[in-house]
């Protein structure tokens, strides 16, 4: 049976309770594909039931909500289902299960969490800020997973007095730091006026990128392995292009 919930955490736990003993349960908050001849169950969120379930699961594993929150950021379409199977395993075992890697549900969940964390780590490096006229920084991103606000702590610690915006152009939202507080806002399009020096610094960076390369040791495959093409769109040194040698084409 397919259980559709509203996408909130409490919605997830309400659905979790309802679907718990259904061996063929599928959980989703998005546009899940309907199986032929199956009417989905629309779950109406029950906050008090959900809170109870959370409390009980936390008593088995005090880190389980942290795992769940990472899992639910995963961009894969079956992420809610994977999260459900993981939490169900936890409820059945009544102890932390994340090390039970020989279990399919746990292994899937752990690999999804790893993917999300890996992308956060990747973007700590691959994000490119531009300096705007006001001095604030602006970085467009298009991540696989819903993580733009999870990038904030790293950059806030790094630029404590610099306002900046990390704009997820795919999900049309932005994580904002104004030099004091952090926000997550819906943002469709950003009107950004760059500072007068921005182009010159970008040009200097491109120059550096080509100068530091050793052409006689070309290993394109390795470069792409470490820096997947999907991140190139916003990197000036790749000229926003996902071809291998943007300068030569």
């Amino acid at each position: 049976m397919l259980y559709l919930f509203d996408g909130t955490e409490n919605g997830f736990f309400t659905a979790f309770l309802q679907a718990f003993s259904d061996t063929d349960a599928h959980l989703s908050s998005g546009e899940a594909q309907l199986l032929l001849g199956q009417a989905p169950i629309a779950v109406s969120t029950d906050d008090s039931k959900a809170e109870k379930a959370k409390k009980r699961l936390l008593s088995f594993d005090s880190d389980c909500l942290r795992d769940l929150r990472i899992l639910r950021r995963c961009g894969a379409s079956d992420n809610e289902q994977i999260a459900f199977a993981y939490m169900r395993k936890l409820a059945n075992e009544k102890r932390a299960v994340r090390d039970m890697l020989a279990d399919e549900a746990v292994f899937q969940a752990v690999s999804y969490m790893r993917k999300v964390r890996l992308e956060i780590h990747h973007l700590h490096g691959f994000i490119r800020f531009m300096e705007t006229e006001s001095g604030a920084l602006y970085a467009p991103v298009s991540p696989d997973h819903d993580i733009c606000d999870l990038l904030l702590p790293h950059f806030c610690a790094r630029f404590p007095s610099l306002p900046f915006v990390i704009h997820d152009v795919k999900r049309k939202k932005a994580a904002v730091y104004d030099g004091k507080n952090r926000y997550l806002l819906p943002l469709d399009k950003a009107d950004v006026t760059l500072s007068c020096n921005e182009q010159a610094w970008q040009a200097l960076w491109k120059k550096y990128y080509s100068a530091v390369n050793i052409p006689s040791r070309q290993r394109i495959k390795q470069m792409i392995g470490y820096m997947p093409r999907r991140y190139w769109a916003f990197m000036p040194e790749k000229n926003g292009s996902d071809t291998e040698n943007p300068d030569e084409t």
Binding site: R158, V212, N213, Q218, R219, M223, Y226
Partner: peptide, 28 residues
Amino acid sequence: NSGGMGNGYAAGCCHSFTPDGRCISLLK
């Protein structure tokens, strides 16, 4: 970070990769 800009990242961080397959982490 004690005011000013920047901090250390104990695990290290690669910011780009050149066509020779090497990472750019520091301005060399």
